[in-house]
Amino acid sequence: MLLIHRSQRAANAVRAVSAGGELFVASVVVCMILAAFGDAVDPTFLGEAGLEFALFDLGGEFSVLAMRHWHLLQLLVAGGVIAAGIAVLRVAAAAYFRSLHPGLARSVDKVPIKF
């Protein structure tokens, strides 16, 4: 009998979670899996294959191989940054694609063009 089950929203967290919260946790999980990937990959192998610099070494601490040393705080910060980035991209992409759609013929901001 968990305390959180006193709240209907918390007991059904997978259904009640907000889109932003879900994006943040999903980003943290992706970072955790990347950290496990950095832990699983043998750095010498990547170095020999020349892949380390090509694929992973984006500059010091931000490489996937360095993520093996990351702790929860760093994973949370990285997840937050990724989630914020995706949210900004989503808003920008939505604004861009909205501008590509033609407005209604009788809308106020419709510019009349006659040939």
Partner: peptide, 20 residues
């Protein structure tokens, strides 16, 4: 209860942290 009711994502984060 108030915290998890307002932010159910805490439960998801808790699940992810437990898995980690």
């Amino acid at each position: 209860i108030k915290l998890v009711d307002r932010y159910p994502s805490v439960i998801l984060l808790g699940g992810a942290v437990l898995a980690w």
